[in-house]
Amino acid sequence: MCFNGKVECSFTCTNRNSEAGLHVTFYDRDWQKMPFARHYPAERAAMPKPRNYEKMVQLAEKLAAPLKFARVDFYEINGRIYFGEITFFPGNGTEEFSPEKWDYRLGEWIELKTILIAK
């Protein structure tokens, strides 16, 4: 997740097609598990950092450089990086955070002072 063109946090989606259901687990820029969930439960244990994580960060920041916020998705499969998508409204902007304070904390990471309005 890029704020002002910089990766501030990442997340993994696991167990999509299992009985346990989807888990979404957030990590800070240093791949330390963050203490919140967004709509779906987080995994109890942290996942290992992807082998190509730093390259994914570089690519995400290049794509998101001119943007105030964007989620840039990559997948690592057998040591190769694959691009997924870029979105400006993850979860349609409606998925709740638990605890709720993290919704506000992430929102504070967006620098809004320099927004230009087209005329």
Rank of each mutant, 00 (worst) to 15 (best):
I117E: 09
K119P: 03
C9W: 01
V24G: 00
K62P: 00
V24D: 01
A46C: 10
D30P: 03
N78L: 10
Y27K: 07
R71G: 04
F3G: 03
D73I: 07
M1R: 01
E85L: 11
D73W: 02
E108A: 14
R105T: 13
P41E: 05
N17A: 09
Y75C: 08
A64T: 02
M56N: 05
F69K: 02
Y75G: 04
L67Q: 07
I86V: 15
I77P: 01
K62Q: 11
R51H: 12
Q58Y: 06
E76G: 06
P90Q: 13
R38P: 01
T14I: 01
P35M: 10
K113S: 11
T14E: 03
A118Q: 15
G93R: 14
F88E: 14
E85A: 12
D28L: 08
L22N: 12
L63S: 05
T12S: 12
G84H: 09
A45F: 05
Y27M: 09
G91D: 10
D30T: 11
E111N: 15
F89H: 13
V57W: 05
R51C: 09
R71M: 11
G84P: 03
C2S: 03
E96Y: 13
A60C: 15
F88K: 09
K49T: 04
Y104F: 10
G91A: 10
L59H: 04
R71N: 09
W31K: 04
E96D: 15
K49A: 07
A42T: 04
E76C: 10
R38V: 08
D103R: 04
L59N: 05
W109K: 11
K119W: 05
A65H: 15
I117P: 00
W109R: 11
M1A: 10
M47H: 13
E54M: 13
Q32D: 14
I115W: 11
S18L: 11
V57D: 08
Y40R: 04
L116A: 12
L22S: 08
V7D: 04
T87C: 08
N15G: 01
S10L: 00
W102A: 07
P35R: 11
L59P: 01
